[in-house]
């Protein structure tokens, strides 16, 4: 089992606020890992640090042993890390299909090749029927799926998903869970931020828990939800696995 991504003692502060504090974890290739924690725990900041959108205050990020935290986001993407934005960012003047094509231009300049990759990505998240819609005609859950499709078109090794299943009905979420599992079987590594513990338990083989910017637990989902620190800080007394 090889390690795809290593995060070493990563920290990031905004002025006086330490959003991510000395966080380390690693992701094994082909696995789905969940990053959980209450709002404001630093999950999105972690994504931004891994994806090159923010520079760490200290610490390192390594992809397949190569240090990447000095690279701009477009370079990180081309090295194989694709991310979605928690607050969706569709290209408004472009159709759903065109949105899904953009990522493909990181590895091809052939428009029809990009288009067929885009259809494939949209197909895998269940948006193919809406390929020719405008993005403002999509519902919020659909826009989150479009974010996922855009990221998939870059042919990533590692996919960072920031709350993409928020707002989905349980049956829809189950469909996406199936899609993620299939992608992981195909060799894709996934790090996902997700609030619904039932989904986390179902898809993730490992869970990393953040609280106030620091990692407070890490391990298989069954162990993590039984961890007293996690129960206390995040899941609350009402949660029983």
């Amino acid at each position: 089992m090889t390690t795809l991504l290593e995060v070493e003692n990563l920290s990031r502060s905004f002025g006086g606020l330490i959003a991510v504090k000395d966080v380390s974890f690693s992701l094994r290739a082909g696995r789905i890992t969940a990053l959980i924690g209450p709002n404001g725990a630093g999950k999105t900041t972690c994504f931004n640090l891994v994806a090159g959108a923010l520079k760490p205050t200290s610490g390192r990020v390594l992809l397949e042993g190569r240090q990447i935290d000095n690279s701009p986001p477009e370079a990180v993407c081309r090295m194989g890390i694709a991310r979605t934005f928690q607050i969706v960012r569709p290209m408004r003047e472009m159709s759903v299909l065109e949105n899904a094509m953009i990522g493909a231009f990181s590895w091809t300049r052939n428009v029809s090749e990009a288009r067929s990759k885009a259809y494939e990505s949209l197909e895998s998240v269940g948006l193919a029927a809406k390929a020719h819609a405008r993005t403002d005609q999509l519902t919020l859950p659909d826009r989150k799926m479009l974010e996922t499709a855009k990221a998939l078109s870059t042919r990533p090794k590692l996919l960072l998903l920031d709350e993409v299943m928020a707002g989905l009905r349980p049956t829809e979420a189950a469909g996406i869970v199936g899609v993620l599992q299939k992608l992981a079987e195909g060799g894709l590594t996934i790090l996902l931020v997700e609030h619904v513990m039932r989904i986390v338990m179902e898809v993730a083989s490992r869970v990393v828990v953040l609280h106030h910017g620091a990692k407070i637990a890490e391990g298989p989902p069954g162990e993590v939800v039984a961890d007293p620190k996690v129960l206390e800080s995040y899941l609350g007394a009402g949660f029983h696995a």
Binding site: P73, E74, C77, R92, I102, G103, S153, T154
Partner: peptide, 11 residues
Amino acid sequence: DDESAARALGV
């Protein structure tokens, strides 16, 4: 349409 979203997609 969105410069930083485009960069995240490798542009």
